[in-house]
């Protein structure tokens, strides 16, 4: 439904940001794109709804080319992006009106808009803040509002461009939970761009970016099995995977594919206590 075909991109300053990247985003999948700062992952995100246009290659959303000016609104309605800085994406002074900003731009009739806004606020658990002033909310709450603003446009794909980078652990966990819920309950396609490896554990597919190209691709299991390669390009493996590998190396326990704290703890207890 969203395909990136041999895309290269060079900034005006002459620095190449993407080099011949090809990627298909499948309907309903939860995709995570990881990479260090400057690996090209944010440039890629801005390609997905035509905020940036490829220097070479094409980005096709539901059969529409992002280079086609006439289809741009249609594309942006389908591909919602939540950005890093929670402050810089809220436009108006009342939460409810901000969530309505997208639908207003799309010319949605008022009665339908009210339903959509209420629904979107409920999906992110912010219905009780509908009349609040955004600047009084926490970072995590602001990001929830930003997500609601996208949901109100009823997009097919939700892109989170390092949306958790400026949040505290609490806010980060919160946003992650909401995104997973939206994916499971509403079947929305999620593209999560992040530098926190832990956030990639819950994804169905992980893409690792490095200096403008795709370095690795696979399930979290497959990608994080290549810890040494990841470290070489400035990334890390989640602490859980690191522990699992250490346990195996030291012959304490082989926990197979366990990836979460719960799985490892359970597996360890079972294997060590022989129950």
């Amino acid at each position: 439904m969203l395909s990136i075909k041999n895309v290269s991109f060079t900034y005006d300053s002459g620095t190449p940001a993407l080099e011949n990247v090809s990627l298909d985003i499948r309907e309903g999948e939860f995709l995570c794109i990881v990479g260090h700062n400057g690996s090209g992952k944010s440039t890629l995100a801005k390609m997905l709804n035509g905020l940036l246009l490829p220097t070479e290659g094409a980005v096709i959303v539901d059969g529409m080319d992002t280079a086609d000016d006439d289809r741009l609104l249609d594309i942006r309605r389908r591909v919602g992006i939540v950005f890093q800085n929670p402050d810089n994406q809220i436009v108006t002074t009342v939460v409810r009106e901000d969530v309505a900003f997208g639908p207003e731009n799309l010319g949605i009739p008022t009665e339908e808009m009210i339903v959509r806004v209420d629904e979107a606020l409920k999906s992110v658990g912010m219905e009780s803040y509908a009349e609040s002033a955004p600047h009084m909310l926490s970072g995590g709450q602001k990001q929830r509002i930003a997500i609601a603003g996208m949901l109100a446009m009823e997009p097919n794909v939700l892109v989170l461009d390092e949306a958790t980078a400026m949040l505290d652990p609490y806010g980060r966990r919160d946003i992650l939970k909401i995104v997973h819920e939206l994916h499971e309950k509403k079947g929305i396609t999620v593209v999560m761009i992040t530098q926190y490896m832990e956030e990639a554990l819950g994804a169905e597919r992980v893409i690792v970016m490095n200096s403008g190209h795709i370095e690795m691709e696979g399930t979290p299991q497959e990608v994080f099995a290549r810890g040494d390669e990841l470290r070489k390009i400035g990334l890390d493996v989640p602490a859980a995977i690191e522990l699992r590998e250490l346990l195996k190396e030291r012959n304490i326990a082989d926990l197979g594919n366990a990836m979460t704290l719960e799985e490892i703890s359970e597996g360890l207890c079972r294997s060590l206590l022989k129950i």
Partner: peptide
């Protein structure tokens, strides 16, 4: 308290609860 202790500390707590 909403603070995230180091992974290993959380794991140790979980294992202790599990009987190790």
């Amino acid at each position: 308290m909403g603070l995230e202790p180091p992974f290993a500390a959380r794991m140790a707590a979980s294992l202790r609860r599990g009987g190790i």
